[in-house]
Amino acid sequence: MRIRMDLAYEGTDFHGWASQPGLRTVQGTLEAALATLLRVPSVAVVCAGRTDTGVHARGQVTHLEVDEDTLAGAAGRSGQPLPEVLLPRLNGILPPDVRVRSVAAAPLGFDARFSALWRRYCYRIADRAGSVDPLARRQVLAWPRPLDLEAMNDASAALLGEHDFASFCKRREGATTIRTLLELGWDRDPDGLAVATVRADAFCHSMVRSLVGCLLAVGEGRRPAAWASEILRAAARDPAVTVVHAHGLTLEEVRYPPDDELAARAAQTRTTRVARHR
């Protein structure tokens, strides 16, 4: 049985999503808890987006494969429906900085990574003295100078669409840096925070944080709005672009197509990525 799990985590004390020997990661923590619950030696979990060290999530999506007999054995005689019975027991094992929000049998063709249409992140900045909240210091970047969001939105508009985002990505061997940026905009929330909403079909390593770093230079008036598109066209990392701190970034949502389109979307995504790698 393929199971979908939606989860949230506070990323401060994790070395990112992906398992790494000797380091505390979200994947490693989740898989260890699942192995304990299911009474199996190991479990493999696939996620929608591998967040970096210190990045948070409200809407991470994962899937795993589990034998139905194993699942029934873990459920015991609870009488609760499978696999929903796992939810309270799993959260009872997990540490408080990660929580599974829902567990359900995945629809036919569902793949947490490849079936996704897009991922949406938000980056939050307190650029006014009155909006700096010490209770939110782990989720919000405190910035010492006021930002011009209108200028930042002008710069952001030129980055939308399908491009090679090599200027904003940390390259990985054999991986493409071509992405489709569907949304990039800045607004003030009710608390006065400057919030960037960034939505794309997928993201490469450090892409959102690099985009925000570039746009901060525009918002401060150190660079003109056109500078962002110049950086994009260069298709190479520029030391003038700062990769901002991870703690202001949160994975908010992953969107999927209707159930009857999940398998086709996964096949399309895989085909597109293979073509881009060539």
Score class of each variant (00 low, 15 high):
3 I>D: 04
3 I>Q: 02
4 R>A: 09
8 A>C: 09
10 E>S: 15
11 G>F: 02
15 H>C: 12
15 H>F: 12
27 Q>W: 05
27 Q>R: 04
28 G>S: 09
28 G>Q: 03
36 T>H: 12
37 L>Y: 06
38 L>D: 03
39 R>G: 09
40 V>W: 06
41 P>L: 08
43 V>L: 05
44 A>E: 15
46 V>W: 11
51 T>A: 08
51 T>F: 02
54 G>C: 05
56 H>T: 09
60 Q>V: 01
66 V>N: 05
71 L>I: 03
71 L>D: 02
73 G>W: 15
73 G>D: 12
77 R>D: 14
80 Q>I: 06
83 P>A: 04
84 E>N: 02
85 V>R: 15
88 P>L: 07
88 P>K: 07
89 R>W: 11
89 R>Y: 12
89 R>P: 04
92 G>P: 02
94 L>S: 04
95 P>S: 07
96 P>C: 01
97 D>F: 05
98 V>K: 03
99 R>P: 00
99 R>L: 10
100 V>C: 06
101 R>D: 11
103 V>M: 04
103 V>H: 01
104 A>C: 14
108 L>Q: 14
109 G>L: 05
110 F>N: 10
113 R>Q: 10
113 R>I: 03
116 A>V: 06
118 W>R: 13
118 W>M: 07
122 C>E: 15
124 R>F: 14
126 A>G: 00
127 D>A: 08
128 R>V: 03
129 A>S: 13
129 A>E: 11
133 D>E: 08
134 P>T: 07
136 A>Q: 15
137 R>Q: 12
145 R>A: 10
146 P>D: 09
148 D>A: 12
151 A>K: 13
151 A>P: 05
151 A>F: 12
156 S>V: 05
156 S>N: 10
157 A>C: 08
162 E>M: 13
162 E>T: 15
165 F>L: 01
167 S>C: 07
169 C>H: 02
169 C>D: 04
170 K>F: 06
170 K>Q: 11
171 R>V: 11
171 R>H: 14
171 R>Y: 01
174 G>F: 04
175 A>Q: 13
179 R>N: 00
181 L>A: 04
184 L>H: 06
186 W>L: 06
187 D>T: 14
189 D>A: 02
189 D>M: 00
190 P>C: 11
191 D>Y: 08
191 D>V: 08
195 V>S: 01
196 A>K: 01
196 A>D: 02
198 V>I: 15
200 A>M: 00
200 A>V: 06
201 D>G: 15
202 A>Y: 03
205 H>G: 00
206 S>L: 13
209 R>L: 01
213 G>D: 01
216 L>P: 00
217 A>P: 01
219 G>W: 02
219 G>P: 00
220 E>D: 14
222 R>P: 00
224 P>L: 07
228 A>H: 00
229 S>A: 14
230 E>V: 03
232 L>T: 02
235 A>N: 13
238 D>Y: 04
239 P>S: 03
240 A>V: 09
242 T>D: 12
243 V>C: 12
244 V>C: 05
245 H>D: 12
245 H>I: 02
249 L>S: 10
254 V>I: 15
260 D>V: 04
261 E>W: 09
261 E>I: 03
266 A>V: 00
266 A>Q: 07
269 T>W: 08
272 T>F: 10
274 V>G: 09
274 V>S: 15
